[in-house]
């Protein structure tokens, strides 16, 4: 019972928070659509960096799933 309340409250609360952000209309997204505002503005550059850091550091993973392995690590 308590769990349900928590879940409902959480959902309602996050929806309210999301709604607080929701003032950006579809035609107001000119700045957001700029290439330099994308998550990954140069895909080859970030792929290369990921590959280098993967082979020189112990950490990997992030906002996408891993690709293939290499003998570099």
């Amino acid at each position: 019972m308590m769990l349900n309340i928590k879940v409902i409250l959480f959902v309602a609360f996050s929806m309210l928070i999301l709604n607080a952000c929701s003032q950006v209309r579809p035609w107001e997204r000119g700045y957001l659509s700029k290439k330099e505002m994308s998550w990954d503005s140069d895909i080859l550059e970030s792929a290369l960096n990921d590959h280098i850091f993967f082979s020189k550091e112990a950490s990997s993973g992030g906002n996408n799933a891993a690709g293939g392995g290499c003998g570099c690590n």
Binding site: C21, V24, E28, L32, W39, G61, N63, N64, A65
Partner: peptide, 22 residues
């Protein structure tokens, strides 16, 4: 590997993304 991410437009000038991968 699995991942899940949530991206949110905050306002006309900013966005936020959080992701977990296992």
């Amino acid at each position: 590997s699995v991942f899940v991410s949530v991206s949110q437009i905050i306002n006309q000038l900013s966005t936020f993304q959080s992701a977990i991968s296992i």
